[in-house]
Amino acid sequence: MESWSLFTLYRRILFSAVSVYVLIRVSLFLWNWVVASANDSREIHVLRRYLVTLIMRSRLRRFWFDLLQIGVLVILLGTLLRMH
């Protein structure tokens, strides 16, 4: 059982607030796209397919350095969390 302290309280509140915030923002983002592309007119249909193609044509190789940095940061964060 984790002993309660001021910092533990801070961590819990921060974790909850950030999680809720991220959940709301991501849900809103996805919902906006669903609403925008729900129209069944031909233009929207073509645009939707084009957007999917545009996304699929992106190459992760272009962002290899950023992804490498993110990977290192995630490993670092995981290691530090395990040290608690």
Partner: peptide, 21 residues
């Protein structure tokens, strides 16, 4: 990706602070 990196850096700082505490 930059935003994600900044978030991770910030989280690492908070974890470090927590460890120090």
């Amino acid at each position: 990706l930059n935003i994600l990196k900044l978030t991770l850096v910030f989280s690492i700082l908070v974890v470090l602070l927590s460890l120090l505490y």
